[in-house]
């Protein structure tokens, strides 16, 4: 049986099912991170003292990671634009770059985490580190998830382009929406944890 409304829009919503589906999922993600941000505010404002992030965390590394993630958002949207221009080869290059930049982000995060553990800083050390590891850890899981989906669309999933290019372009767009959301979360995490 064919999946309905993957390319043509549903008359009642004016959208494809995939588009409304990814936005509803992102809405649930906003609430998930929102709950953690609310916890952060509650813990921070309730604490008698709170360290400034830059005294514990590595700001230069996090700045590089911010640049890496923003760059990956650009390559992601360029991958989609390449498909819209029917340039499949260029799409592969941009999508590959997006996956690679995601990998760079994780490697930098690995060095950051390793340094913290080596110096005896764990989630149980303080409330600040507990919320730092929880928020960045959850964000990292999202990066991994996004990379897995993007890798699928770079590799085996790209076969769909030959049989149904419109559907494939829509899928890449939806995957991109998730990736940009991950970037958006980091844009708020970076100043909140590292700079304030």
């Amino acid at each position: 049986m064919e999946i309905p409304y993957t390319v043509e829009v549903r008359p009642d919503t004016g959208l494809t099912n995939g588009k409304i589906g990814i936005w509803l999922f992102l809405a649930s993600e906003v609430m998930l991170f929102g709950a953690l941000f609310a916890s952060y505010i509650l813990i921070r404002t309730g604490a008698p003292t709170w360290p400034r992030g830059h005294t514990i965390l590595n700001v230069p590394l996090a700045t590089v990671n911010t640049i890496v993630l923003i760059s990956s958002s650009v390559t992601m949207v360029m991958a989609w634009a390449s498909l819209m221009r029917h340039r499949f080869g260029t799409y592969r290059i941009y999508m590959g770059a997006t996956i690679l930049l995601g990998g760079v982000f994780l490697v930098i995060k690995y060095f950051e985490y390793s340094h913290k553990f080596e110096t005896g800083l764990f989630p149980s050390t303080s409330n600040f580190l507990a919320i730092y590891f929880t928020l960045t850890g959850l964000h990292m899981l999202h990066v991994m998830g996004g990379m897995a989906v993007n890798a699928y669309f770079w590799g085996p999933g790209a076969k769909l382009y030959k049989t149904n290019p419109e559907w494939f372009i829509n899928r890449v767009e939806h995957s991109g929406l998730f990736w940009h959301f991950v970037d958006l979360v980091w844009i708020f995490l970076f100043p909140t944890l590292y700079l304030l």
Binding site: S73, V74, M76, V77, G176, L177, H180, F181, D183, L184, I187, F188, F190, P191, T192, L195, L196
Partner: peptide, 17 residues
């Protein structure tokens, strides 16, 4: 910091998304 983050987030949401 939050003002700048909101501007950056809006740019991502409005144009990339």
């Amino acid at each position: 910091a939050l003002f700048v983050a909101i501007v950056k987030g809006s740019l991502v949401a409005c144009y990339f998304m």
